[in-house]
Design a protein around this nucleic acid. Structure first.
Lengths: 359, 359
DNA sequence: CATTCCAATGCAAGCGATTGCATATTGTTT
DNA sequence: AAACAATATGCAATCGCTTGCATTGGAATG
């Protein structure tokens, strides 16, 4: 078990208490120092208004600012202008490894444009999503990126009613209320099914994700469409109760017990790993007895035994695109029409898929 | 999906100045609605000052506020009070899977106390850490949590000079300038070495992390101490150039080519996985030929072949502790003495360790 | 040379919430 | 019953920055 130890022996130096407020430099102080009015300093320091000020003065102001260590107070600016250059990101669960790269892509793109990222994790126990949104909006965020959207989502509506620009990422919403950046889930499933069919599989099952999430819904849809396109029977399909290994194991077990298949396409890597476990529990092996395909290309799945064949999604790029779309939305005075950006996935062929046994 | 806007339409849209601002409710509006002064509303809504106001009025105010959908403007509050209830978190690399759980623990703990989390990722190309810190401080954060600290770190000094409370997490800093929450790295290595020795290993090598990070330095130190405690020869030791699979593979390869060992303790799970690869490349197998122990217990390492024996660290708890320590630091008027909180790791024994071959 | 115009800078009014102080309204004491 | 205390509420200044408007001086124009 884990024990906490407050290590008395190790606290060494007192932090010298600095009278914090005394060292805060304001615009007015820079103005005094440079011998101009504070409004001139403001304009000289802002690239968009700098052209109004004589070059010589700009230089003087910038020198003073640097020497005094001036740092603009963003709260004051935010209060005055009504914009915070802050974007809120709502995540369904920080512990799910797909969201870290999305977040990374978002922060990188936002940072480049001078925006900050404030995050909220809806995956905590006893946390109300609407309260999270409320708090983000209360912090004057200029926009929100939601990675949590269900197919019909009223938190999206709440944001729109509040006039806050919203972009969805990874999961789309089907009422067309907000823009979204997603992977082409149907296409991803088609890649998986095509690959299996080419190997000779005819009986291919699907472990589906939750149907109220666009990923679960559309991947299932994509699976069905691809099977039909090949003239193969659709099913069996088992819906997992969550995107987790445990749920995947249960669903795969039910699927295997129900019908003999030579391959399983899972809606998600974790579900695929659950299927590995279900196979092991039944003394079956992958890919000899059953081929398995995942979705997402999570870290480390290439090192499993067997290495997982999976549909790769560039989560980082997804986050970047979402951030860029949101910024355009924020800067467009009358709001942009909702639009979807669909990224193309690719298939990573590894060891978990092989030709079916010639019986 | 994409709608083009005519010039005329755009012109009109721009003239209607306030499509969004119209719905923002301020304290004063609530005051008018409730028939009291705005200062009364402020006091009634703030739990700490609520006692000054008659219960009946408090009720009336709260009803009005709710009905109008009042949401406090945190920029205004921040400007007035000089505190933002915002904490900055600096991550070395969002793509490293250990940091997501740390971040999750931080946000959960901060959220519970009404604080927001603003993140910055130093792992981007071409991003200066000091600029990140500058920008966070400019946003009036009340404190910072750094997961990036080197053993001797001047960004920490920069924060302290600015009078911003700082707490380090995962990686400590050795000059005692700031508090830190870390795992007991020496102890973790002792657990690993003890386990191997108990299995009968005598020749145990170490793949070390970077010596300028406390994790790399102290784990190596812990390994050496544990070996000496058992009266075993220290080494061979190979220092990896980064915490990555590739670096681990290279280091493990050099180690194996240099000296015959029956076990390897890696400073990190990714390094351990690199060692897996190096073993494979040499036709050796784990644990038959060489036992391997990792550090961190990353997701999925239990599903590898063989499942990785590793030192588990509760990253989530680490984040939570760091957040709590920071909040105490913020609320302590004269600043808290720097202190380290050391969490105890546990050993997860899995399939990558076994008794050495009896030759 | 007078007039107009433009560019550069100063002035001052806020943005919305907090809080020390003043004031009003009770209740309590002598 | 007068004086006082205590409690509840109102008043107004303030936090630091931005920006519409006023002002100035000098260049361009007629």
């Amino acid at each position: 078990m884990l024990t906490l130890q407050s290590n008395v022996a190790k606290h060494i130096a007192m932090q010298s208490k600095t009278p914090r407020a005394s060292r805060v430099v304001t615009l007015k102080q820079v103005a005094t120092d440079a011998g101009v009015h504070s409004s001139t300093v403001s304009r000289a320091l802002n690239p968009r208004t700098r052209h109004m000020i004589a070059d010589e003065i700009v230089q003087r102001v910038m020198t003073s600012a640097k020497r005094l260590g001036y740092r603009p107070n963003s709260a004051a600016a935010s209060l005055r202008t009504g914009t915070s250059r802050l974007v809120g990101v709502l995540l369904p669960d920080l512990f799910n490894p797909v969201f870290a790269p999305i977040l990374g892509g978002i922060t990188a793109a936002l940072f480049r444009e001078g925006y900050g990222t404030i995050i909220a994790d809806a995956g905590q126990e006893g946390v109300d999503t609407n309260e999270l949104i409320e708090r983000l909006i209360g912090r004057q965020v200029d926009g929100l990126i939601l990675a949590t959207a269900a197919r019909h989502d009223d938190t999206v509506s709440a944001c729109i009613e509040n006039g806050v620009p919203v972009v969805l990422v990874n999961r789309a919403e089907e009422d067309g209320k907000a823009s979204a950046v997603v992977s082409d889930d149907e296409k991803g499933m088609a890649l998986a099914v095509d690959h299996l069919v080419k190997l000779g599989h005819k009986s291919i099952g699907h472990i589906a994700g939750l149907p109220n999430l666009s990923t679960g819904y559309r991947r299932r849809h994509g699976y069905e469409a691809a099977m039909r396109a090949h003239g193969l029977p659709v099913g069996p399909i088992e819906i997992a109760s969550a995107y987790s290994r445990e749920a995947g194991e249960i669903a795969a077990g039910q699927l295997l017990d129900r019908q003999r298949v030579s391959a399983i396409v899972a809606a998600n890597d974790l579900l695929a790993l659950g299927a590995y476990q279900a196979l092991n529990a039944r003394g079956l092996s992958c890919p000899e007895d059953v081929s398995i395909v995942g979705h997402n290309d999570m870290p480390l799945v290439d090192m499993l035994q067997p290495p997982l064949t999976t549909v790769r999604i560039s989560h980082r790029e997804m986050g970047r695109e979402a951030a860029q779309l949101l910024l355009r939305n924020i800067n467009e005075p009358s709001g942009l029409a909702a639009r979807n950006v669909v990224l193309m996935p690719t298939l990573m062929v590894r060891g978990s898929t092989a030709a079916p046994k010639t019986r």
